[in-house]
């Protein structure tokens, strides 16, 4: 009679360490951020509870200008979904068709994912350097001197210049996810479609892409939430400048937290990011919902 209880107790005891870690590392900081977002706090002393004032200020303050940062993040998310993912999908489809040197191509495309964003950022700073950078040197060498810019210092082009390395860095990551999905697809499906009269392009469009739909969903979620949370590359390249032109919610949050010592407001942005990521993940899941 006591066996089921003892069995459940065993399960609970085995799960307890993981539960403690999960609560301690993930849930507790979120809960604390939620609490601090309702306070005025400089990181020292006792936080002063101010209700929703931080939220009101966040969306109305022109000095913080969260809407500009959000607009940049959304643009990054849209470009990730519309450029980065289709490009990764094309590469995955191509490489999965027994291309000669398949493994080498995979390794090369995946390499930027393995390298630290700081290193990649430094590399692109060199490329964009107005004096000796490869980009301007190339433009000058082909007679396009008028196209040369101070790429990371000109507020009109700085964000565009930052987007290139950010999108480029994670193409290999999404490509590998999709490649694994395509490789996991039974060869019979492709062969059956070919016998039915499909061309290779039709096989990709009508069979392969629908088959890897769950992986595409994960990729879209990662691309969108990753764009909302994006921080490191922008921080290295421009730190949100010039004149906040490349500001993202995360860079704004760091500046508020560590430069202006506004821990309450920084936490407000953190909570907003968590909510946004959660909402977008839900919406994407809904959009990809399959007929059961």
């Amino acid at each position: 009679m006591h066996r089921p209880f003892s069995y459940k107790l065993n399960i609970f005891l085995f799960l307890l360490p993981a539960l403690i870690l999960f609560v301690g590392i993930l849930i507790a900081p979120i809960a604390m951020s939620a609490y601090y977002s309702l306070t005025e706090w400089n990181g020292l002393g006792i936080p002063k509870f101010i209700g929703l004032q931080n939220y009101v200020e966040l969306f109305t303050s022109k000095s913080i200008n969260i809407m500009r940062a959000l607009k940049n993040a959304m643009l990054l998310a849209v470009l990730s979904v519309c450029i980065q993912l289709p490009f990764a999908l094309l590469l995955a489809l191509k490489l999965s068709r027994h291309v000669k040197g398949e493994r080498w191509y995979l390794a090369i495309y995946f390499m930027p994912v393995l390298i630290s964003s700081v290193v990649i950022g430094q590399l692109w700073i060199k490329i964009y350097n107005p004096e000796y950078g490869a980009l301007n040197m190339f433009l000058r060498s082909v007679g396009l001197d008028s196209w040369t810019r101070i790429w990371l210092g000109d507020k009109n082009v700085a964000f565009g210049a930052c987007l290139v390395p950010i999108l480029w860095q994670y193409v290999g990551y999404h490509m590998l996810l999709m490649y694994a999905g395509i490789k996991g697809m039974p060869a019979d499906l492709n062969e059956a479609a070919m016998l039915d009269g499909c061309t290779p392009a039709q096989v990709s469009w009508y069979i392969t892409i629908p088959y890897i739909r769950p992986i595409l969903r994960v990729s879209v979620i990662f691309a969108v939430t990753g764009s909302l949370k994006s921080f490191d590359m922008i921080y290295v390249l421009t730190n949100g400048g010039p004149n906040h032109a490349t500001e993202l919610p995360s860079t704004l949050m760091i500046n508020l937290l560590f430069l202006r010592n506004r821990y309450g407001m920084g936490s407000t942005i953190a909570v907003m990011l968590i909510v946004l990521c959660f909402v977008f993940a839900m919406l994407i899941n809904l959009a990809f919902k399959e007929e059961k």
């Binding site: 019979d188 062969e191 016998l195 069979i207």
Partner: peptide, 10 residues
């Protein structure tokens, strides 16, 4: 046309 071992249904 072919009937496959794994059925190969889409």
């Amino acid at each position: 046309a072919m009937v496959f071992q794994s059925y190969a249904l889409f």
